[in-house]
Design a protein around this nucleic acid. Structure first.
Lengths: 109, 109
DNA sequence: GTAAATTTGTCAAAAAATGACAAGTCTTAT
DNA sequence: ATAAGACTTGTCATTTTTTGACAAATTTAC
């Protein structure tokens, strides 16, 4: 895994877009998206739709897995932020995730 | 903070309910909920609705803040589980949450 | 066996997310 | 100054997701 961005996913898209000199309208078209809505995405007022990740990775020649990690950590980070989840509670959450994994293994037997 | 349960929130409700000898129907009534749906909640097939936490804490004489932490860690744990988020990525997510906090502080100025 | 308790399936209603478009602001070149 | 392009914001219909409700199983305890 290479380094992950410490920005919101929207800011990351904006960064990529600016680097490549595309306008909102141009990138939105490539993504099959309305430019107004892409603007909202970049400004964190809407979520980027996960099913557009492959196209996004293609447009900017990014590794899809890494991009998905960028997306995923943004999503979880957002939830941590919104719920005001402390580090301490996050550890509990992590244990609970682990617990769910064991549940799932049992189910598989 | 006292100890948090290492179970899903649904299992926790079931535990509480069994300890107090209530049936699904009885507890569901107190929660203003259909017993079939409470069953699904306990079995992890639906989510407990956050707005019922106060009533739940009242019914079982629990501290609302702690109960909310139980709920919150369950929610985030579920997301960690569903997205297959590794510990490593979770650390990144935590940093991104931190980043959002700084963004929010700036906005407040 | 049967009565109560629980689970499962289904579907309409409610709520949330998304797409689309109009109208606004801001910037920049002329 | 203003016209053009880039971006932002607001709104609303449509779509998707979640929830509530009820009927019909299945399981459990007697």
């Amino acid at each position: 895994m290479t380094s992950l961005m410490n920005t919101t996913f929207g800011e990351y898209i904006r960064l990529l877009r600016n680097e490549s000199g595309l306008t909102l309208t141009q990138l939105a078209a490539k993504l099959n998206l309305d430019s107004a809505n892409l603007s909202k995405i970049e400004n964190g007022k809407r979520d980027f739709d996960e099913k557009r990740l492959p196209k996004l990775s293609e447009i900017f020649s990014l590794n899809l897995k890494e991009l998905r990690n960028e997306y995923l950590t943004d999503q979880i980070g957002k939830k941590i932020y919104e719920t005001n989840c402390t580090k301490q509670l996050l550890e509990v959450a992590e244990e609970k995730a682990e617990y769910r994994r064991t549940l799932n293994k049992e189910k598989a037997l």
